[in-house]
Amino acid sequence: MNPIKQGDDLLQYIPQRHPFVMVTALYQHEDKEVVSGLTIEERNVLVNNGLLQEGGLIENMAQTAALYAGLKAAEAGKNAPVGFIAGIKHVLIEELPAVGQSIHTKVAIVDEVMDIQIAQAAVYGEDDRMLAKCELRIFIKKEENAG
């Protein structure tokens, strides 16, 4: 897969900043779906003993959802919104990726109710095996009007 955007170009779409950025590539963006990528580096704050920890996988899925919201806002001529995890359900962690591996994460928005996005998220390894998945409920803070 070749990235559409990568590195610091993604920072305009997500509220997170270094050293807590858990998406480094955008591979796909459609109406209700986004696919991000992340290469696991030793300096990643959520790496321990050479492995991206469970919290890193969940944060990667949440930041992929944030990337979707930021891309959608940019298409509407707005700034990237700030989102907060309102709930996580059905978490399954199959395997922790090691330093040097690249993962890709698919988030599909299954519903949007008021200011809450409900998303199905899954992380895949280089061999396309699923490493983790969950359902995310994300509260999207509305952009405040200036004035």
Rank of each mutant, 00 (worst) to 15 (best):
N2Q: 13
P3A: 15
I4R: 13
L10N: 03
Q12W: 03
P15F: 04
R17Q: 07
P19W: 04
F20M: 15
V21A: 11
V23T: 02
V23C: 00
V23I: 14
L26H: 02
L26S: 06
E30D: 14
K32C: 08
E33H: 09
E33V: 09
V34S: 05
E42K: 12
R43S: 14
V45G: 02
V45P: 09
V45D: 02
N48D: 03
N48Y: 10
L52F: 14
G55T: 07
G56N: 08
L57Q: 05
L57V: 03
L57S: 01
E59A: 08
E59Q: 12
N60H: 06
T64F: 05
A65N: 13
A65C: 15
A65K: 07
A66S: 15
L67E: 05
A69D: 06
L71C: 07
E75N: 13
V82I: 15
V82C: 01
G83W: 05
F84W: 05
G87T: 11
I93N: 02
I93A: 03
E94F: 11
E94D: 09
E95G: 00
A98F: 07
A98G: 08
G100R: 06
G100H: 08
Q101P: 13
I103A: 01
K106F: 07
V107S: 11
A108F: 04
I109C: 09
V110F: 00
D111F: 09
V113G: 00
V113H: 06
I116R: 00
A122T: 05
Y124I: 06
D127F: 01
M130S: 10
M130I: 14
M130F: 08
R137L: 06
I138W: 03
I140V: 14
K141E: 10
K142I: 03
A146G: 06
A146D: 08
G147F: 09
